[in-house]
């Protein structure tokens, strides 16, 4: 039972971790909670849905390339949506009070949910089950190929992100910008461009999480981002918001806690336990596992 729930939790955690990265990266750069990120996740899931159902048969035949194409479409689309949201709804408010972009983000979130509800569907829709699922058993623990696929994809994306931010010129500039915008500009870094790249990457990872979520649960809906979004945000806070490793660890931790609650207590309690974790962290360790003092970015 324990190991079975651990496998389920790691799968869930893979999705939360990818999702949480977008919250934490944006917070790290702008000290702002991007409440519209849950809708980027949702739109990513829809883009994957359309790509999976609408791509011509001759493309669907070639499995690896087909999946790469589906994920590329969903990630690019979600990334560009995140960049657009920043340009339209946050950048004009950069010098306003901290509350203004927060409210703007909630507005964007409501707008996108309603847009999808009205123009696409108000009902949940089954996700195309093009992924061939095979089941394996190791020492009595059930693992299926979709779980392995989700975990492998999430880990690869996280390793790539880690390499990007620690080894590349742009990644190093991104970490510098997270520490001090003014001094970064004095180095010749175009901070607005760094912010765009941050939204692009965070949005793409959110879109990836959305597609994986759709594939795992088998259905999507216009409001599908809400609860997972709260959990991913919780994961980011538990890990230490603004900290990239923290979001990854927090995501897996939350996925595992959720799965264990479902397994040992009751699925009715899973959200109660998760948000209790959030409250406890906020009370006893408000900076999260890897968090540090909040620094001024102006």
């Amino acid at each position: 039972m324990f190991f079975q729930q651990l496998v389920n939790g790691i799968t869930l955690g893979s999705i939360y971790a990818l999702f949480a990265l977008g919250y934490t990266m944006v917070y790290g750069i702008l000290l702002m909670i991007n409440f519209a990120h849950s809708e980027i996740f949702m739109v990513g899931a829809y883009l994957g849905f359309w790509a999976l159902s609408l791509l011509p048969v001759w493309v669907q035949g070639w499995t690896p390339g087909y999946f790469i194409l589906v994920f590329a479409i969903a990630m690019m689309g979600a990334g560009l949506l995140a960049v657009t949201i920043e340009r339209v709804a946050y950048r004009p408010l950069r010098r306003a009070s901290r509350l203004a972009p927060l409210i703007s983000a909630i507005g964007v979130s409501i707008f996108l949910q309603n847009l999808v509800q009205v123009t696409v569907s108000a009902q949940s829709q089954p996700y195309p089950d093009t992924f061939k699922i095979s089941h394996y058993e190791f020492f009595g623990v059930q693992v299926n190929s979709l779980q392995i696929f989700i975990f492998a994809l999430a880990i690869s994306a996280m390793v790539l992100l880690q390499v990007f931010i620690t080894k590349t010129r742009l990644g190093k500039a991104m970490r510098a910008t997270a520490q001090n915008h003014t001094v970064s500009q004095l180095m010749g870094i175009n901070v607005n461009f760094i912010i765009t790249v941050t939204f692009l990457i965070g949005g793409a990872l959110g879109g990836l999480a959305g597609v994986l979520n759709g594939m795992y649960y088998g259905s999507i809906k216009f409001n599908m981002g809400f609860f997972p979004g709260l959990k991913a945000f919780t994961a980011a806070v538990v890990g230490g918001i603004g900290n990239i490793k923290g979001a990854m660890v927090g995501g897996f931790l939350l996925g595992i806690i959720e799965a264990l609650t479902v397994g040992y207590i009751s699925s009715a309690y899973k959200d109660i336990i998760l948000f209790a974790v959030l409250i406890l962290v906020l009370i006893f360790r408000p900076t999260g596992i890897f968090g540090e003092e909040v620094t001024e970015k102006i």
Partner: peptide, 19 residues
């Protein structure tokens, strides 16, 4: 001074050469 405290000495130098 405003060095990038959370980055290494070498990275700080590389950031100076950003342009």
């Amino acid at each position: 001074r405003k060095v990038f405290a959370k980055q290494s000495v070498l990275e700080n130098l590389e950031l100076g050469a950003y342009s």
